[in-house]
């Protein structure tokens, strides 16, 4: 029944199967395909021997080359650290002020700082430190917690109003609850702050008296604020949240407080130094 015969047209053998007079050609696989197949098989066996491959009860076969992707990463990082070490050791040893004095080091820190800022800081403070509602602009010369490079470094390291023990802490008292001001007084006070922000404080207004009684301890008599307490200056038109009478009234009655993570929990000391130098040189460093 099964007779293998040569097909006259193609020159190939048939399989010997026949259905209702229809026969099946048994065309072999192309030679190149077969060679590639066997080469792959040999390669796979070699790979099992050379590289980590098979699971075992206690782990896996390590392979003769002892390759590890995590190990190779560790080596990459080490090599990178090595190649950067000429700069990084200098940055590690220098204080932020010293970095700023050394022109080459400053340039390096600025370039590094920019990259780190883009990944970590720009989400809140905007690209280039342009700021956003509730997040201070870093490219101007108005600072909440001080604009010297050391003060900036301190703020980055420990953040503001977070769980870190060294973070900058302060909270404005809410004058809409507790030791509260009457609505009328809040309005008068807001009017006075608006006038103060316009550089023309309304002398002799009822708001001035309330300001003198309730606000000067932190915001200072002339409204210039207090960097040690993070009390913002009120004698300019820069507002962290919202300016105008509405915004100021809202802040007096139920103050909002921003917060910032302590970056020393995430970034190393050299990285933070580069960031501090970068922020200090964005335009408004003191």
């Amino acid at each position: 029944m099964a007779t293998i015969e040569k097909d006259a047209v193609s020159g190939q053998n048939t399989t010997g199967h026949e259905w209702d007079g229809i026969k099946e050609l048994n065309t072999p696989l192309p030679k190149w395909w077969v060679y590639v197949f066997w080469a792959c098989t040999v390669w796979a066996i070699g790979y099992w021997i050379a590289m980590p491959a098979w699971p075992t009860p206690n782990g896996f076969t390590k392979g003769m080359l002892n390759y590890s992707s995590r190990g190779s990463l560790d080596e990459d990082l080490k090599a990178q650290k090595q190649s950067r070490s000429a700069w990084l050791t200098k940055i590690e040893k220098a204080s932020v002020e010293e970095i700023e004095k050394d022109k080459a080091l400053l340039q390096y820190a600025m370039v590094g700082g920019k990259v780190i800022f883009g990944e970590n800081c720009s989400a809140c403070h905007g690209a280039g430190g342009s700021g956003a509602m509730g997040y201070p602009r870093l490219a101007d010369d108005e600072w909440l917690w001080g604009g010297s490079v050391a003060e900036i470094e301190q703020t980055i390291k420990f953040g503001v109003r977070n769980a870190n023990a060294n973070s900058r802490q302060s909270e404005m008292l809410p004058f809409g609850t507790g030791d509260k001001l009457a609505d009328q007084q809040v309005g008068q006070l807001a009017d006075y702050v608006v006038s103060m922000a316009g550089k023309a404080p309304a002398k002799g207004s009822p708001g001035e008296a309330i300001f003198a009684e309730r606000c000067v301890a932190c915001h200072a008599e002339d409204g210039s604020g207090n960097k040690d307490l993070g009390a913002p200056a009120l004698n300019n038109q820069l507002w962290l949240f919202k300016g105008g009478k509405d915004g100021i009234t809202a802040q007096i009655t139920k103050p909002k407080h921003g917060s910032m993570p302590a970056w020393s929990e995430r970034l190393d000391a050299s990285t933070i130094k580069m960031l501090a130098v970068y922020v200090h040189n964005l335009g408004g460093g003191k």
Binding site: N120, C124, G258, P261
Partner: peptide
């Protein structure tokens, strides 16, 4: 986690 504040 911890990279940005809750408020953000």
């Amino acid at each position: 986690g911890g990279k940005f504040t809750n408020e953000w």
